[in-house]
Amino acid sequence: MNKHVVVIGGGVAGMEAAGQLRKTGFEVSLFEKEEKPGGHLNKWYKLFPDRRPSSEVKEYLDNITSGEGIKIITGKTIEKIVQNKNQFHISDKEGSEYTADAVIVATGFDLFKSARKEEYGYGIYDNVITSADLEEMFRKGSITLVNGRTPETIGIVHCVGSRDEKMGNLYCSKLCCVTAVKQAIEIREHLPSAKVFCFYMDMRMGGAYYEELYREAQEEWGVNFIRGKVSEVSESINNRLVIKSEDTLAGKPLKMLVDMLVLMAGMEMSEEGLKLGDSSGLKRGDNRFFSPADHHFGSNKSNLKGIYYAGTCTMPMNITETISHARAAVMDVIEYLKES
């Protein structure tokens, strides 16, 4: 009989892992808490750095996970994994139990809850939105203020909830910078007359063609970059947003009125991942993500044999890295199941 592998989390990592597992001949069950698989990909409109539609990646993932050999179970949140000899017993929120010979945990990330950074006024001021909200607007094809008008000046704040000790996140989410640049360009695409200002601490453009995208944003789209973290946002009498920052390169405080402020929410360990990890005895690091057995040559291995990690449940990753990481997890599963 074929060995059965359970993949927890139907985002990019989970879908890729499931597809690759089937190729090698395993029976796969893919659990997804939402009603359909795809994860954050479903919410994103276009991807950096080439602005290809996210639906293309989704299509690829749907293709490799459809058909015989993969059971996709949606609307189920897995809460616990218990090992019994060579069997893993997996239980969901409702108490149903499933068994598996190996498990891949691909619980992914949550976007930082921007309301926690109260000084930015998310949830308080109407026109403070997050990067995810903006993607939604792109998808709908209209960038508008709450009162229906079109914004003329838009601020983008980098590092919201990342590199922020006060929020308990010392790490860099590493994708927000390039997301900001991508979204700045898209705003200019949609609203050619709008002015866009990115407020950054450091521009971390460390991926393939990221720096080029940054240059394109400046050169072709006229996006403005101001080196200074926004410290405070308030609302003016006519409902515009007053942002306070320091232009650290000019060495002067900077006050600016914008119509809309976009917060580049960072990546955090997902709530489901936290629950699952803590109830199953999976080790987590200071950054709350799962802590792999070895950061160099065991980044998919957990502290429990037979349970492997794929994707952003271990650290912030882009889609390319996530897919590679998921494939690597499959290698570990093959090796493990050969031994047992």
């Binding site: 109260e118 000084e119 006024g121 308080i124 001021y125 405070e232 946002v233 308030s234 609302e235």
Partner: peptide
């Protein structure tokens, strides 16, 4: 209070 706009509002 300026850092807690919810209170101010």
């Amino acid at each position: 209070t300026h850092l807690t706009p919810a209170i101010k509002n």
